[in-house]
């Protein structure tokens, strides 16, 4: 399914957080959203998931404006793996994954064998089948991420929205998860912090800065040391990977002053106070 973000503005708490962002995402491709903390990645993804409503512009799934779709219709098109999770009451892993079947079922009755089969398959696919009867809150950070991804898969939607899915994951599980995302064969919008991971796995990357889209295109064209300096305020060195020849970034130090076209203060105090 094709996703089109068109001239999108989103306000949060009265402040503009995303301004004039347009991104076309062709079916079956992976779009990586990059940018420093507070650049609007999560808010943009919330708008695509239909949770945050845009103040202007629109999001289209295969041409259909999502502001005209019901919650349920949206939930059949896009599954979301977010960072927040409420834990007031406890829930076993399999039940949590089965929640992904809600948009496809009735409001009452037992989970069908079909639903349970899909959920177990998804858990198996993320290597978490052995966790099915465990309580979600008793899991490690990495296990939780995998279970939440299994829930997104169980929702069986053509589009996946993932907000920093590799958080809390060790390096092996990071690689494993992005491999899973790639092999899921869906249209994916994913916010990532790791630029090298993004460069390697995304078909397209969009770099956000202060809520605006600074650059959009294939990673090898978009990502370079100049962009990393101006968007993230970090000096870096670009090297060729000794085996694959792929471009790889090594991060050196904070850029002493904000870049020429950055009106944003440097986020951390420590870095700027050092001469």
């Amino acid at each position: 399914m094709r996703v089109d973000i068109e001239d999108l503005d989103v306000h949060r708490g009265g402040r503009p957080v995303v301004s004039g962002v347009s991104i076309p995402v062709p079916p079956g491709t992976v779009l990586g959203l990059l940018g420093p903390n507070g650049s609007g990645k999560s808010t943009l993804l919330r708008a695509v998931s239909g949770i945050a409503s845009p103040s202007s512009g629109r999001v289209r799934f295969d041409g259909a404006d999502i502001s005209f779709l019901s919650r349920r219709e949206i939930a059949r098109r896009v599954a979301v793996m977010a960072q927040e999770h409420s834990e007031e009451f406890e829930i076993p892993v399999l039940d949590l994954v089965l929640l992904g079947r809600i948009p496809h079922g009735k409001g009452f009755g037992r989970d069908s064998d079909h639903d349970i089969a899909i959920a177990e398959q998804a858990l198996d696919r993320v290597g978490a089948a052995h966790l099915a009867t465990r309580s979600f809150s008793a899991l490690s950070g990495g296990e939780r991420q995998r279970v939440l991804f299994a829930r997104a898969l169980t929702q069986d939607t053509p589009v996946l929205v993932l907000d920093e899915p590799t958080n809390h994951l060790d390096i092996a599980h990071q690689v494993e998860l992005v491999d899973l995302v790639r092999s899921a064969d869906r249209t994916v919008l994913v916010a990532l912090h790791d630029l090298n991971l993004a460069a390697r796995y995304c078909d397209t990357v969009g770099v956000l800065d202060g809520g605006r889209l600074r650059s959009l295109g294939p990673p090898e064209r978009v990502l370079d040391t100049d962009l990393i300096r101006s968007a993230f305020g970090v000096e870096s060195t670009s090297v060729a990977h000794p085996r694959s020849g792929r471009r790889h970034f090594i991060f050196d130090a904070r850029t002493p002053e904000p870049g020429p076209d950055t009106d944003r203060p440097i986020p951390t105090e420590e870095g700027s106070s050092t001469p």
Binding site: S49, G50, I51, R71, I74, A82, H85
Partner: peptide, 9 residues
Amino acid sequence: GDDAAATLG
């Protein structure tokens, strides 16, 4: 959670 419930339709 509210947001997660919303994304579940």
